[in-house]
């Protein structure tokens, strides 16, 4: 399927690519969720289903040289940056061909070939690392921008504020992306923070800061594009807060609505605000998306996913004898 075959303009094609990228992440994560019950992916796993627009909208404006750091909920960030999907699935299965050779699992992802520098699950841990990477770029006069994804809960960590201050002080080329899904595990914002916008605090640290609808991929893209443009051109650190909603349990493959920590109406409106469905209907209305395009995406992804799982499951299992390697460089 190509732009010309579909008779789309460059711009229309790019819009379609956003949908494609979100849908791809969704399908990969749904496959993970479905097969998790087989008990062969034996690691804590945090899915970003419902939040794909942020990873996709931001990554769409990054170049290959720009680098990304992330957190426990990293699959979408990794895939959107171009991370190797076979190596992701193999990592979940603890295989030698995984992106960490099996040492990390879902919560620890890396793909240096595409500038995905590392995702780790100690909340806040990678935020200063991204600042450090931006610092190195600035010290070495390299053009890349550093990007870090983190949650609303993470914004409560002291190290985040220390990082914002340092980045602002040194006017570093960094984009902070706060994914505000209102929750830290089961705890909503109102039990953790006073009622005031997160991005305004970043602003008070001395940087440009914006807020947007994290479920609208085009809004994410346009905010990120402007921010990246400033970051690339000496505008110093940029902060964007994007509102979104986590569909499934904090950790694990299932829905956990039976726990009653969010009301039925809240869940209903959360699910209704699907970044993929909303954008798909917008594209349909603009005659960019048709059922046959959708079908071809689905066919492509199910093939890619089947291949990645097969790759993972047929990959070598590391031996316990290797466990002691790699402690020192």
């Amino acid at each position: 399927m190509s732009k010309d075959e579909l008779k789309l303009t460059e711009q229309q094609w790019d819009r379609l690519a956003l949908l494609r990228s979100m849908l791809r992440i969704r399908r990969i994560e749904e496959a993970i969720a479905e097969r998790y019950a087989e008990q062969e992916m034996r690691c804590p796993t945090h899915l970003c289903i419902g939040q794909e627009a942020i990873a996709v909208g931001v990554s769409a404006v990054l170049s290959r040289d720009d680098v990304v750091f992330s957190n426990h909920r990293a699959h979408g960030h990794y895939i959107a940056k171009g991370g190797n999907v076979r190596a992701l699935i193999a990592e979940l299965y603890g295989r030698s061909t995984g992106c960490c050779g099996g040492r990390g699992g879902s919560m620890h992802l890396i793909d240096l070939d595409v500038g995905f520098m590392g995702a780790t699950p100690i909340v806040g841990g990678t935020v200063p690392l991204a600042v450090g990477s931006a610092w190195a770029a600035s010290l070495k006069d390299e053009k890349r921008v550093s990007v870090v994804f983190f949650g609303d809960g993470c914004f409560e960590e002291g190290v985040v504020h220390e990082s914002l201050n340092f980045a602002a002080l040194h006017k570093l080329p960094i984009l902070f992306v706060c994914e505000n899904n209102e929750f830290s595990v089961y705890t909503r914002m109102s039990e953790r923070q006073p009622d005031r916008p997160i991005y305004r605090i970043a602003e008070a640290h001395g940087m440009a800061a914006y807020h947007g609808d994290g479920n609208d991929v085009e809004e994410v893209l346009s905010i990120a594009e402007a921010a990246m443009d400033r970051a690339r051109n000496g505008g110093g650190p940029q902060f964007i807060e994007l509102s979104t909603y986590r569909w499934r349990e904090h950790c694990g493959p299932n829905f956990d609505d039976h726990l009653n920590y969010r009301s039925e109406s809240e869940i209903e409106s959360g699910l209704k605000d699907c970044p993929i469905a909303n954008f798909a209907s917008r594209l349909e209305l603009s005659n960019i998306l048709t059922q046959s395009v959708m079908d071809s995406f689905e066919a492509e992804f199910s093939e890619e996913i089947a291949d990645a799982f097969e790759f993972a499951l047929s990959s070598a299992k590391p031996s316990s004898k290797e466990a002691g390697e790699r402690v020192y460089a």
Binding site: G102, G105, S320
Partner: peptide, 16 residues
């Protein structure tokens, strides 16, 4: 425990 971190992979962690 041996003097190295716990690997996530169940195959690698088996005798940890």
């Amino acid at each position: 425990l041996p003097d190295h971190p716990m690997p996530t992979s169940p195959f690698m962690a088996e005798h940890y």
